[in-house]
Simulated scan of single mutants.
Amino acid sequence: MKKKKILTFLLTLVVITGLFAGCSSSKTSSTGITTTSQGKKIDKDKIKVGFIYLAAVGDGGWNDAHNDGRLALEKMGIKTIYKENVPESQKVQTVIEDMINQGCNVIIGTSFGYMDYMYKEAQKHPDIIFLHNTGYKTADNMGVYIGRLYEATYLSGIVAGMKTKTNKIGVVASMPIPELYRQINAFALGVQSVNKKAVVNVKWTHTWYDPAKEKEAGKALVDQGNDVISEEQDTTSALDAAQEKGLAGIGFDRDKKNADPKMYMTAPVYNWSVYYKEQINDLIAGKWKSQSWLKGLESGVVDLAPIRDQSAPAGAKEAVAKAKADISSGKLKVYVGPIKDQKGELKVKAGQSLDDAYLQKIDWFVQGINGANEK
């Protein structure tokens, strides 16, 4: 009888223990990631982040902007590694596997063409956190992120519109994808806000990174009479053509601090540390969840680099400061109608504005832009 009571007690204990285990909202993987009801968590000392770059660190633009964010994480005490010159191909998956073998539990891909490969790896490794820049595919363990750089590009358009004397402004553009359309359009709308006569001329390079091709495109625009050159490339080579002719230039992605102050006026820039530190802090706090992250001037993730007095037109700082405050507060919307496309067709009615969902897919140029609308 006594044995029966002991057996009953032990069975009851097993059931109760099982119930508590079943009600528990957390589990820890071999990578140190704990999944709780609030989100995913990793102890700070166990986090290791792998960054994948399309080109080399030192490009002065896109890749350096992301590397600045990586260095900000290291200042927080987070371990990081990175791989340069990774093409938008299946090579991405090989690099990811290698990073995981090196102990990385967070993988960050910084180029649009990495998306499908990262998504495949996210499905293969559900216990690894993936963050993909500029894409749109998400999973429970894969988030995407981008900043509303077009808001800062609008501000740079104000500077360009006030600077030009020929009323011809050139833009060297990389790939015909929505990201570029919304930024070039915003640039042109900024130009038009201060100079109705000016036109924006676009030349595509069909490459993210090719310094020689970028400079060649910049030279072609200079030869066509454009006296201000802006660029939407990973490097700043397009501005070399402007500098050689004593013309004005506007950079992209990152402040070109060492540029000729008589040529270089400013640049719309990313401060990716805002996003990277937020994501890592969320992981440490146990509240990381996959999301499509999109913020603008109000967050500090995008901004306009300091305007150079030696090259920028008089009054540009004041005009930009007012527009920036109005955009940040919501008083000014970049894409508010009436807006017509290149063919003169009304695309946005007066008083209406384009939302983020539309802008994520935009594939047309506004009126006042010359250049192929390539799809």
Rank of each mutant, 00 (worst) to 15 (best):
D127I: 03
Y82K: 13
V95N: 13
Y117Q: 07
K91A: 15
L71K: 15
I81D: 14
A72H: 14
A122S: 14
D98Y: 09
G103E: 00
I108T: 01
Y82H: 15
S111A: 14
K91M: 13
V95I: 15
T138M: 10
Q93F: 11
E121A: 08
R148N: 12
I81Q: 13
T94F: 07
K75Y: 12
K75V: 08
D140N: 15
M118C: 04
I129M: 00
I96E: 07
Y117M: 01
I107F: 11
P126H: 04
D140R: 10
A72S: 15
Q102C: 10
L71I: 14
V95P: 10
K91G: 11
P87W: 07
L71W: 13
M76N: 06
A122H: 04
N133G: 06
K83M: 15
C104A: 14
N141F: 12
G135P: 06
T110E: 11
G147N: 04
E88T: 05
N133V: 03
P126W: 07
D98R: 04
P87E: 05
K120Y: 01
T134K: 04
D98H: 05
G113K: 07
D116N: 10
D116A: 10
I146V: 02
F112G: 03
M99F: 15
M118N: 10
I146D: 02
E84N: 15
K83N: 15
S89A: 13
G113R: 02
Y117T: 01
I100M: 08
Q93T: 14
T94S: 13
Q90I: 05
I96G: 09
F112W: 08
L71N: 14
G113F: 06
H125N: 14
S89N: 12
Q102G: 09
M115G: 00
Y82C: 12
Y114G: 00
N133A: 13
S111C: 05
R148Y: 14
K124V: 00
I81N: 13
G113V: 00
V92C: 03
V95D: 13
L73I: 06
G147I: 01
D116G: 05
Q102F: 12
I128A: 08
I78V: 12
G77V: 06
I128T: 07
Y145H: 07
N101L: 14
T94L: 08
V92M: 02
S111D: 09
L71Q: 15
K124I: 01
N105G: 03
D127N: 08
V106K: 01
I146M: 02
D127G: 02
N133S: 10
A72T: 12
I129A: 01
H125M: 05
N141R: 12
M115W: 01
G143C: 04
K124M: 03
G147F: 02
H125C: 07
G103D: 02
Y136M: 01
Q123C: 09
M76F: 11
D140H: 14
L131K: 02
G143S: 12
M115L: 00
L71C: 11
N141Y: 13
A122T: 02
T94E: 14
N105Y: 07
V106G: 01
Q90L: 11
Q123I: 05
Q102P: 09
M115F: 00
Y117G: 03
L131A: 08
K124F: 04
